[in-house]
Structure formats: C-alpha cells, structure tokens
Nucleic acid binder design. Structure first.
Lengths: 219, 219
DNA sequence: CGCTTTATTGAGGGCGGTCAAAGAGCGTGG
DNA sequence: CCACGCTCTTTGACCGCCCTCAATAAAGCG
C-alpha cells in the first residue's frame, strides 16, 4: 500500500503535459494525473471514497469479487468519463486499469467547495451512473445470453461515428459484465456473426451490419 | 392520465393528519400526501423525474418491463424511505404501491432551494440508492438461486429487532426482484426451511433460525 | 362455504455452464 | 524469417441448474 503511494509522486511528474484541454477544464487544475499499468488497481473495495477520478487516457473497469472468485464488473469507463463516486463512504467495487492508463484524481471536497459548476458536474455524473446501473440491472436480471451480448454490442456502437467499433476489453471482461462465461459470450458472438447482424474483422473489432436487427435482438 | 390527476386533489384531503412527525420534518411541510391503491402506479417509466417521493404508509416497488412481459423489480421501499430520484431527467423504472399506501410528494426544485439540509438529504439518498443497486447487480449477475433467496431474506431480517420478519411482498415480486421464477423462489424457500436455516410461520412471515448459516449461504 | 388468487410440488426440457481440445494471436528469441 | 511458448479465443460434447408446464394445496375474500 505505501509502496503504491511512493510510486505515485514519481509517476505524476511523467505526465505534466496536459492530456485533455486544461484551459477549458477547471477540474484538471485541481487534480493530479497518475499513470496505472494494465490490470493495476486504482482503488480497492472498501477503501474510502473521498476521491473522484477521470479517465485521461486508456480505460477503466470496476469489479467486485465473491469469496470463491466469481467476479462481477460494474461498469467500463473510457476517455473523459468520471468514475469513483459509486458510493458516498466506502467503495463497493474496486477499479482497475484495463490498459496502461492515465487518470486524473481530485479530492471530492475540493470539487464541492470549488463552486456550483463542479458540484453540478458530480451530481449529473452520479445520476447518470445510477441510470446506467439500473439499465445493467435489467440486463442481468431478465435478458438471455443472446440479448445480453446484443445489448452490449449496441451500447458500444452507440454514438460511434465510424461504422467500425473496437472493443477495449477481452472476452472475460465482457462475460463478467454480462453475467455469463467466456464460452457463452464467444458462442453468441459467432451466432450474431453467422446471422449477418455484425461482422468481426478482428477479435476486438467489429462492424454493425444490420442495426435494426441488433436493436431488436437487444430487446 | 388526467383522470389520475383529478383524483389526487380529492385524496389529499383524506390525509391531512400527519402520518410522520411533521414538526421534525421540514420536507413534510413542502409536499402533498397522496393515497394509492394496491398495484396503482405512482409514476410511470419515461415520465419526467421532477418529483421526489417518500413512503408515509405502506410500501412501494419500482419495476421495469420488457416488451414481452418479462419484469425486473429495481427496489422495494418501506415506510420512511425516499424514492423517485433514480434518474435526473426521465424515470427508467415505474413505481407502484404494493399495498394501499400513502406517499408524500415533493417538487425536487423546492427541496433544492430550501437549504443545505434537504439538499444533502437528496444527495445521501441518491448515493445510497446507487450502493444498493450495485449490490443488487452483483446478486443478479453472479449468485445462484439459493444465494439470491438467502441474500434477500438476510436483507429483510437486517435491522429488524424482532426475530419474526414479515414479507411485504408475494412470491412473484420476490422472483422479479431476484431474476428468478416463482417456482424457483418457492423451492429455495422450502429448501432453506428444510435445512433449518429459516422457519416460515406463514407464507409472508418467517424467523431466522441460523443467521450464520443464512449469511454463509448468501455469500 | 365456494370462488379466486397465490403458493407449493413434481416431471421434464432447454439454456447456459463445465470440461476439454484445437485454433488464433502475439511477443520473444534463435 | 520462422520457431517457440504463452495467452486468449473458439468450438464441441456433456451436464446441471433453473425454467416451463401441469397439478395440487393453501390462502385470501366476499
């Protein structure tokens, strides 16, 4: 633990250059940039939740483990996303970098006192987080494997201008997000491809061939 | 829709008497009490989310339907609980009274401008809602039927002084909360009773016989 | 007490999990 | 450049958990 902290100072210096436009972003001035290696923990389950994070580069997942190793992924975060405010007191999930990533870290209290704009930003982010979690709840509780995978691909393809979408995660992360196994995810992907709904050009890159059908399959 | 609104004024009058201590509760003074019959809708999916609700008497569930009738319950609320702030703009779930209930309804904007205390109340309630939803996520995604039911019973028994716990909902509501069918819920309840972990004195009333075992089975 | 709704129990089937093996991707080093 | 080893992905065979369908039992209610 202290080991990680000693490193953080050293890593800050390596990222003095702004990764996002600092002039337009008051949050960037108040925080510290920290680099994390692939699969490195950003914060742990049951840690205090007095910091707020923002993905500057790379991507992040939040995970929760059961004692026997079963894992549930809560959410994925991409560049620009805020995360870490899933709880007011202690984190229920831990956060890990999915690739070598850079994260902006800000004290929650600093944002609270900085003014209405940032306070409002936290509020809307928390609110959106709750919305997304409830959508996720419906997916886990009442959708079958095919609908789960279709929903997931549709979510990734949403708001992407290019017709080619790249997956920032492997099959295991997809499975643990969808409440499935990697084998089932793989089978459903093959099935979607066989029915010409999507087309995989590589294991982590696909195109949506028939968006209407994909949307229908996602319920 | 207008039908419901016409009724609301009439129903207000019937509940002029305070159900909760009004002197200690500034929220109660700003809102309106409305009575709902069993299974009546309090708000609908996709409605504007500019109101905040509090259960004065009875109990409330939030639900979401898929087009083919599959249903997911998001949460149950008991007397004193706040609900309706799962989203900042539009409700993703609808809310229904589980029994004949009385609900205090307050404009979100009224609470926001009323001062720090109430603002803080909304914040902590939203935050707790997010925590609970994430716990629910883990349950739906990675627990088996037995663990789901054990978790559910444990949650109900938590913070209840009496050793006898009463269920405010039927088997269908339990099933739709846990992502199971009523038959599976019933089987798991029978199984938990057969292994002397809990004991049902009636269909909606049980005692925890072995809390350690129940906790273990809930993961 | 009869009627309707809700809960329990049983039999059988299907979806997704488990186990296993083969294939693909990828960095390392010869 | 290919060979090699490692990880990740895909595919197949089989199994088990939970769902479906059905019948019975219990509970709620006028």
């Amino acid at each position: 633990m202290t080991y990680a902290f000693e490193f953080k100072d050293a890593r800050e210096a390596a990222f003095a250059l702004p990764e996002l436009d600092e002039g337009l972003d008051p949050m960037a001035r108040m925080g510290v940039r920290i680099a994390y290696a692939k699969d490195e923990e950003i914060y742990g389950q049951d840690e205090d939740a007095d910091l707020i994070y923002r993905v500057v580069r790379g991507s992040v997942r939040t995970t929760r483990l059961l004692s026997d190793g079963r894992r549930q992924i809560g959410a994925f975060y991409r560049e620009g996303d805020l995360f870490g405010f899933e709880s007011a007191v202690h984190h229920r999930f831990s956060a890990e970098a999915m690739q070598d990533s850079v994260v902006l870290v800000v004290k929650r209290s600093a944002l609270k006192t900085a003014g209405g704009d940032l306070d409002r930003m936290i509020w809307t982010a928390t609110s959106r987080e709750l919305e997304r979690t409830q959508e996720h709840l419906l997916l886990l509780g009442r959708k079958n494997a095919c609908e789960k995978v279709a929903s997931f691909l549709l979510g990734l393809a949403e708001g992407v201008p290019s017709d080619t979408v790249s997956l920032p995660m492997g099959r295991l992360d997809m499975a643990d997000y969808l409440g499935l196994t990697i084998e089932t995810v793989s089978r459903m992907l093959s099935q979607l491809q066989a029915s010409h709904v999507v087309c995989f050009s590589a294991t982590r890159q696909f195109k949506v061939i028939n968006r209407a059908a994909l949307s229908r399959m996602a319920q």
